[in-house]
């Protein structure tokens, strides 16, 4: 790691002031992505602003048909929360399947969502449940939030405060995990609402995306057979040592069918 200065502000306003004062600074949440990247010198901020003391960014509330989760809430907390388990069990299961116990004891939803890692789990939930992202500057719909591989619409210095998930009538997330890291090689969130079904995919493409053809088919007939023949075109899918685009395309259909089957 290159040297850096470290700050741990006590309030969001102090955090924003510190950000403006320093150069090449970066927010530190759980550090489970950022610190390994700094060790590899892929990232070299001159200052880290640690969000750990910002209690106002932690916590879970359910009201008006939505579950709102503060950015600094741990994956472990989401996976064990009775509020989440009762309102959106698919979300607590997703959080409980991220990485391993120690990653879940440090990693946060805000860090995961801000990072837009192509293989991360939360983006599928944010997009598949049609969540709203609240930041220090605005509220953004999930459909406008993820803009590319490791890219979101967040501007420098903008802090993600919370994610608000509408409670679906039924939902399920299924992933085919990388056997070593548990990151998604392909993961699919299927969620049913009164006005239709949403299907979002992570792991397969450069960033999370929806599958309109599956959504339409499932809105008409919520049955795994309704999507058995729908394949994602391979042109835009990821290719790496873990899986080919063709295999990922195949996995998306299988995971989506399993998710529907489990949600019924």
């Amino acid at each position: 790691m290159y040297p850096f200065d470290y700050f741990r502000p006590d309030s969001v306003s102090e955090a924003l002031d510190l950000y403006r004062a320093a150069e090449e600074r970066q927010w530190l949440a759980g550090g489970m992505t950022l610190l390994p990247a700094m060790k590899l010198r892929l990232s070299a901020p001159s200052a880290l602003i640690d969000l750990a003391a910002l209690e106002e960014m932690r916590g879970i509330e359910v009201d008006n048909g939505c579950a709102e989760i503060g950015a600094m809430t741990l994956h472990d907390t989401v996976s064990r929360s009775n509020l989440v388990r009762e309102s959106i069990p698919a979300l607590s299961a997703l959080a409980g399947g991220i990485g391993d116990s120690q990653v879940r004891n440090r990693g946060t939803i805000g860090g995961s969502v801000s990072n837009s890692d192509p293989a991360a789990d939360y983006p599928a939930a944010v997009l598949g449940l049609g969540a709203t992202i609240r930041t220090t500057e605005r509220t953004v719909a999930a459909d406008d939030f993820f803009t590319g591989m490791f890219e979101t619409c967040l501007r420098p210095g903008e802090l993600l405060l919370s994610v608000r998930f509408p409670v679906p009538t039924r939902a399920c997330y299924m992933k085919f995990p990388n056997p070593a890291s548990r990151y998604a090689i392909a993961g699919v969130m299927v969620a049913s609402f009164d006005d239709g079904v949403r299907v979002a995919v992570t792991g397969a493409g450069p960033f999370a995306f929806r599958v309109a053809e599956m959504e339409n088919a499932l809105t008409t007939d919520f049955d795994p057979r309704a999507i058995a023949d729908i394949r994602i075109p391979v042109q835009n899918l990821n290719e790496d040592m873990h899986a080919s685009p063709e295999y990922r395309s195949h996995l998306v259909t299988v995971m989506a069918q399993r998710a529907v089957d489990a949600a019924i």
Binding site: G31, L35, K39, L48, D76, Q102, R106, A180
Partner: peptide, 22 residues
């Protein structure tokens, strides 16, 4: 690199990988 768990300690009652905490 946060993978192996040899470095696990407890911090405020939670197990964490101490190679990935400042």
């Amino acid at each position: 690199t946060s993978q192996c768990g040899c470095c696990v300690v407890h911090m405020n009652g939670r197990s964490v990988k101490s190679c990935s905490v400042l």
